[in-house]
Nucleic acid binder design. Sequence first.
DNA 1: AATAGTATTGCAAATGTTTTCATAAAATCA
DNA 2: TGATTTTATGAAAACATTTGCAATACTATT
Lengths: 347, 347
Amino acid sequence: MANFQKGKVDIVAVAKAAKVSASTVSRTFNHPDLVNPATRKKINRAVQKLGYIRNRAAQTIHGRRSGTIGLIVPTINHAIFAEVIQAFSDSIDKAGFSLLLASHGYDLDREYAMVRKLLEHRVDGVALVGLQHSEATIRLIEQQGIPALEIWNYAETSVLPCVGADNWQAGHMAAGHLLALGHRDIGLIFPDTTGNDRASHRLSAVLEALASRKITVPDHRKTEAPYSVSQAKQATLDLLARHKRPTALLCGNDVIAQGALFAAQKLGLNVPDDLSIIGIGDFKGSADVEPGLTTIRIPAEAIGTLAGERFTDYITSDDPTNFRVCCELKCIVRGTTGEISTPPDAP
Amino acid sequence: MANFQKGKVDIVAVAKAAKVSASTVSRTFNHPDLVNPATRKKINRAVQKLGYIRNRAAQTIHGRRSGTIGLIVPTINHAIFAEVIQAFSDSIDKAGFSLLLASHGYDLDREYAMVRKLLEHRVDGVALVGLQHSEATIRLIEQQGIPALEIWNYAETSVLPCVGADNWQAGHMAAGHLLALGHRDIGLIFPDTTGNDRASHRLSAVLEALASRKITVPDHRKTEAPYSVSQAKQATLDLLARHKRPTALLCGNDVIAQGALFAAQKLGLNVPDDLSIIGIGDFKGSADVEPGLTTIRIPAEAIGTLAGERFTDYITSDDPTNFRVCCELKCIVRGTTGEISTPPDAP
DNA sequence: AATAGTATTGCAAATGTTTTCATAAAATCA
DNA sequence: TGATTTTATGAAAACATTTGCAATACTATT
């Protein structure tokens, strides 16, 4: 009803309606303690009546914070990241920030472009997924002196603050679980590791763990599959068709592992008796497949939440101090892995 | 290297470095044709050297567009919406816009708060999921005169422009498919429909379709389950345990249907011979379960892409004209539905 | 009652752009 | 060559805020 003045409701319109100066209105928002409660009430009434909404763009240009944080992910459309995004979003929202979201499709040049784009919007900080970025990106961040965060991965040596899990350890744990069950003949299904440090850390850890038991994985036991259930299913069918099948499959993540499971079921194999399968991630749904998927849990929600909290603290702090948070992994044993029937190294 | 001047690189610094006026620099960005190519080159060199990045906040305050679009979804952490968000994000990115994302957890009051928050950032438009919003939200949008869009659902009567699918029709198609296969004893598993017009439209369409064949669904054939595979699985187990089981299950969406499928498998039922299951949505993964899930495909990606395109057009157009786009549904028959063995109305 | 604080408010400058208007230089035309 | 149009640039105002400083009014202290 009271929407005359449509486009023209700024702080001075409010001031006029409340019969005070613009400064006082501004103060009511930013330093309420400095203004008389009675005046404050008058102003709030005027704000209500006119339907005034603060203009953060105008504050931003004043050196004040913009109240936005940028998050750049490889892809949104993935259980893996959707969960982190949600948690991060909720977390920064609590601290009064809004989320500017962008994705780059695993292309580090596009990541650079996205950082630039977000900087144009004067985000108060930018969070990136993973530890691998183009040199230009890092240079840009340093040059602009903008708070930045690496999320999802953890490494002691990270160039920026980071909150995440140690993917090397994840790979190590997965391999360790299979080895402990007696498996020696293990197939590996991983995504392409270029520009994807998560996958590459996991894979090298697995190979290392196996090597330390003097196990080498021949090429016909390795295959590549993207993060897609159906494509992983197909890749698994190919792998299993090729040779005498391994006793276990170690998959780069749970999406691939699910594909592998469906492939095994299609071939009429009994999981885990004929074939053990382990994933990494513990995505939503991994607990629900039949049998439940054994996996290494990466606490996506915890990472997102923690990252949001620590990052907003960092941004709003007067003298920000660097930080690195390593989130705990856990081996979740469900139904897709079992002891090998006749361990090859039995006496 | 050339990063002296850190915080202080604005348009006039560039102007000084290039020995021109600030106006000329501004023009180089916004109306390049109005400035001499030689000067343009000088300016670009200065931009490079100083690492200047345009300040969109400053443009925004000038009445220029902010270059951001707000998207408010019930939840990010869901195959359902992740796909739309991704497509929408990509689509508006192509038109030069950035995405401000917020979620409200199916709480319409929080949705209102989010719209307000985005308006503070002076988004150029705001897109909402669904057709059901609080009155305050609609009033706010109208009062502020901000371009708005309803996404995901379609209805001829929508108060705002919309791009989406007709959920009533989706429910109708799902019921139609089961009826065509001869099913008459059908169990329903739907989420809570309050504040969720998608679910409620689907459900009422199903009931209507059944009623038109003189079929009523008794209460013990209906159950509620949230959008979670594991909880749906549990709910299905309960439903199937209670009475003689129905010949088919119609689920509010694919997540629920997957839970139902796992439950059936756990009970040792043969799907589709003992029990047919149909979902709605056709999410990623629905094709991959064993057997593949029969479902009504809602083209999430197409909706997101189309919505992005139409909305940015709308926003950048001089005289925007309202629009409504209805995306096609399709019944995807896979392995979880089959003809009933002895149709009850057989001669 | 005079003084010293303190609480409250307004004025005006500053923020980083864009755009209108004016001006100067160059190009075109007669 | 002079008049006229076109092209290129700069000066300054405008945008919606915040904030330092100054002014005023009020309160407490002696």
